[in-house]
Write a protein that binds this DNA or RNA. Structure first.
Lengths: 341, 341
DNA sequence: CGACTCGTCGGAACCGGTTCCACTCATGTC
DNA sequence: GACATGAGTGGAACCGGTTCCGACGAGTCG
């Protein structure tokens, strides 16, 4: 209701001075600033973002594109981003793009094309060249997180190395019959997160002289607990020599494997060792050995990069080693042990 | 880059007519409209939301306050809201307010007080009177979902009835020693979701003449899988006559109970029946009997109410039975069976 | 045939800030 | 004491739409 002209009148200054006093830009005498601030407080003045945005061209708002909110990794990233953005005075506009349906085009061509977001953070989505070009042409920085995007600053762990590390952990324990529960599309999409983890697995197995003949020991499944459950049932359910260790592409998948093993009467880690990836909140409860990553922190980092790209906090904090993969850590718990015999 | 004045010039009309043609408000000849639309398409005109918002006072943006994004119920609600809002041409600005820290005041006094959101949807948060007043005074409709908010339109299931229903299911199966894993704060906060479910439990037990003497059969725990795990260990871990049935305040808590039962060597449902609440995506995998609710649909409904409050689609769709509790459904699976003997 | 209605359109004000530019005045320098 | 310097301030333009109001022409009616 109250406009800056009201504040100016009450404080006995011009609109220009009132604006300078409240925004902190430009020179204003301390005494004047105090008067303006007092006047603003008195009438409960709150600046209209629309008006400011209209003239400055900046909306103090960042768009976040995310394929799921209900998967642990994505939820954590989102929380981390939200916190960091809020602290910097930015709003977060959420776009949940699960599939590549018509909504996706609408989001890019309408919602994101307008001058409503200053930048875009894309989590785990592969941006097409057209989409990237559309945003960059409008001067909107893009930061990718966990995707396989070329041409835009992107933050990601080294999924290949992580797959290698997890598999080597099992190899070091003496396992030779090791199965991998991969994410869907891992084989046909070698550059996806799933594909890179699968690659790390194969690399370690090959190096150990255990390259699986067929693909018998790799099973692709959805990245969920039920996916891990049914995948494990199929992997271990048939007779014959069973694997003694299982590398699950994510902790949630590993949880499903726990449940399947229970169902099949297989003890963990006695008859089956299981390792996952993520450092899921629940992994401790399961006693799951895992390679941790830190999605909340990754979200915060993505915001850092975005803000720098927007010209904020220029030299405040040092540049993060751009290009360097994000940190991970092997955490050994009770779900992995030496191979039987 | 391109402004509406450019479109107007190219189409050979005034700014006023161009605006009318593109926004659909006001009378414009069909032929003129086509010319304007062609001109807009030619130069890739996209209206600036800030400019429109400045004069109309509407931002086409709804704020959503949510305490967690990584709990199944909340994530599903968020997805439902996002989809519905997007379809209506609205943006969704996310505020993740986990605790009642200083951020909360900042969100209400700064972020939400500005003219940036047209309305607010609050999920599972108890709004203070001051917070409600602050928003309503600025003409911003509020819709509450799953909270215990008085004074604002609120959508919720009948948690007491759900607790009653779940407990009666166990009673009908002949169970008499029934434990309840309640959410934290259920007893001191009888109006919370946890409190109302607990109340339904007690009501059913009392009606069956089984009112628990002490509170031995109720254990409060965090609303997560690890919470259910440790809670169940404490509930069933000590010697003596164990409960034969467990009513978990949520499916996630129930999942934790499954894991704890496995750990204790208790078979389900042979030695322990378990029922949850939610209709969690994973409940089928666990074979969990549960009282389903439909958070995605609830989110959609909340958007319906908000849009109506904003004066959109006034009589398009009929009013939902305001005040009537949201639908739930008992789904019996393999985790519950008749009491032993 | 004059008056009136109605559809269509243009001019101009306006939303609420920010910022450029010009101006004043106190201070410092030679 | 003349002059450059710079902090502090006000006036006014401006961002890019929307909408009020009035004008104009065509069709209708008495």
């Amino acid at each position: 209701m109250a406009a800056i002209s009201d504040v100016a009148r009450l404080a006995g200054v011009s609109k220009a001075t009132a604006s300078r006093a409240l925004s902190g830009r430009g020179a204003v005498a301390d005494e004047t600033r105090r008067r303006v601030e007092a006047a603003a407080a008195e009438i409960g003045f709150i600046a209209s973002p629309a008006a400011a945005s209209l003239v400055t061209g900046r909306s103090m708002n960042v768009g976040v594109i995310i394929p799921f909110v209900n998967r642990w990794f994505f939820g954590e990233v989102l929380e981390g981003i939200e916190r960091a953005l809020l602290a910097a005075g930015y709003d977060l506009t959420l776009y949940n793009l699960a599939d590549d349906g018509p909504e996706r085009a609408r989001v890019f061509d309408f919602f994101l094309a307008r001058k409503r977001v200053d930048a875009v953070i894309a989590i785990g989505v592969d941006l097409s060249e057209r989409e990237i070009a559309s945003l960059e042409q409008r001067g909107k920085p893009i930061v990718a997180l966990g995707g396989a995007d070329a041409g835009v600053p992107s933050l990601t762990i080294d999924d290949r190395a992580v797959g290698l590390l997890a598999t080597e952990h099992l190899l070091h324990l003496g396992h030779t019959r090791i199965a991998h529960l991969a994410g869907t599309g891992a084989a046909p999409m070698p550059n996806s997160v799933h594909g890179r983890r699968r690659h790390g697995f194969l690399e370690a197995m090959t190096a150990a002289g255990l390259a699986p003949g067929g693909r018998a020991h790799i099973h692709e499944t959805e990245m969920t607990m039920p996916g891990g459950y049914t995948g494990t049932l199929q992997l271990l359910g048939h007779p014959g020599r069973r694997p003694t260790a299982l590398f699950a592409v994510s902790d949630e998948v590993a949880f499903g494997a726990f449940r399947a093993a229970e169902h099949l009467g297989i003890t963990i880690p006695g008859e089956l060792s299981i390792i996952g990836i993520d450092g899921h909140e629940y992994s401790e409860m399961f006693g799951l050995t895992t390679v941790e990553q830190y999605p909340g922190e990754q979200g915060r980092l993505a915001v850092d990069v975005v803000l720098r790209l927007l010209g904020e906090g220029e030299e405040a904090d040092p540049l993060p080693d751009s290009g360097a993969p994000l940190p991970t850590r092997l955490v050994v718990r009770s779900s992995t042990t030496s191979a039987p015999h």
